[in-house]
């Protein structure tokens, strides 16, 4: 906000993931202010088998949320295929028809479509648009009437603070879960190996191309023909995404890009409030409802404690994190 002074005890909005109706209910029952979800097709960036919502499930989810004072955002955050815009346009039309509280979009063509066809439907800018500076964000706001921007996971808290002073729109930041180390929406590593990418297909390192080989003394993960990692018997594992793999460079084997780790900013809530952030986003539409319930309830307590000015509760979410490690990622500038 341009003129707003930081309010230390302002309450952050908690935006939580759901891949199934059961997870949606788990999120809301555990204190989510908002649940974000996607349709069961290539229009969203978690286009995983057996996941996501039919139109009927969306209608039921909206009822469940609205009856309990919560909201539903619909992620339509992949880039439509040339010659085949219909599934994406239908997703936006249906989000408006069913009464979703916002759509989360990345593609400029879709933002343009939504702004023209459904001016009253709230438009949020997806992290997949990778809008990481005030010039770009103000452009999306002025051109497409975007109400909120989900910030890329490449910015430090200092940069977010400076950014919020130069833009006139709400910002939402990732607070917990999977961590993209590459700029989102600008990464073709997955398609280089599998032919399928987040931008085009809504998948990264898709499960259909992943193979685990138990070789007795080690568990080897492969994406297509490429060896991504090898874990010793008791070693903690991570997702088989390329950027969390172990590679050899300069004669040394290492996690060159990033360790298998999860983002967790719970210790930084005061800084994020002071940075002018409006909402916290929890990653993990592909995770089970046990994960959703556990993370959402803990973040509910933390956000409430932050707003009340009481001590933040101890949280133990390590057991559910990737590689069973946490990081504050790019929020701390030394991460770079």
């Amino acid at each position: 906000m341009i003129s707003e002074t930081p309010e230390t005890h302002k309450k952050l909005e908690l935006v939580c993931p759901a891949g199934t109706p059961a997870s949606l209910r788990a999120a809301i029952d555990n204190g989510a202010d908002v649940v974000y979800l996607g349709f069961r097709d290539e229009t969203n960036a978690r286009n995983f088998p057996g996941l996501n919502f039919s139109r009927e499930e969306l209608a039921q989810g909206l009822d469940y949320a609205h009856q309990r004072g919560a909201e539903i955002y619909i992620a339509i955050n992949t880039y439509p295929q040339a010659g085949n815009p219909d599934p994406w346009h239908a997703a936006i039309d249906d989000a408006a028809t069913y009464g979703a509280d916002a759509v989360i979009l990345a593609d400029m063509g879709l933002l343009d479509y939504a702004a023209r066809k459904h001016p009253d439907l709230n438009r949020h800018l997806s992290v997949q648009a990778s809008a990481s500076n005030p010039q770009a964000i103000n452009f999306y706001v002025e051109t497409f009437g975007v109400r909120r921007v989900v910030l890329p996971r490449v910015l430090s808290v200092i940069e977010i603070t400076a950014l919020n002073k130069q833009i006139s729109v709400q910002t939402e930041v990732f607070a917990f879960g999977g961590l993209c180390v590459m700029a989102e929406g600008r990464c073709a590593l997955s398609s280089y190996v599998t032919g399928q990418s987040p931008n085009m297909n809504g998948v990264c390192s898709p499960a259909g191309h992943v193979h685990y080989e138990d070789q007795g003394d080690q568990l080897v993960s492969k994406l297509g023909t490429v060896t991504i990692n090898a874990f010793a018997p008791e070693e903690k594992a991570g997702y088989p995404t390329l950027c969390k793999g172990r590679f050899k460079a300069r004669g040394t084997v290492s996690y060159l890009f990033e360790e298998p780790t999860s983002l967790n900013v719970v210790a930084m809530l005061p800084e994020l409030v002071n940075a002018g952030v409006t909402a916290l986003k929890i990653e993990g539409r592909q995770r089970g409802r046990a994960y959703i319930a556990q993370v959402v309830s803990q973040f509910r307590k933390a956000v409430d404690a932050q707003a009340d000015g009481t001590t933040l509760p101890d949280m133990n979410l390590t057991s559910i994190t990737e590689g069973q490690q946490n990081t504050v990622g790019a929020y701390d500038k030394t991460w770079r």
Binding site: Q81, D107, A136, N138, F139, G185, M200
Partner: peptide, 29 residues
């Protein structure tokens, strides 16, 4: 990137391979 797109508005310019032009909607815009 989009910040350059915004600064080049209403002036002939080129869109580079790092900007995401996947479809007609974005191209037309």
């Amino acid at each position: 990137d989009v910040s350059a797109v915004s600064l080049l508005k209403d002036r002939p310019h080129i869109i580079g391979p790092f900007a995401n032009v996947y479809n007609e909607g974005t191209l037309e815009f």
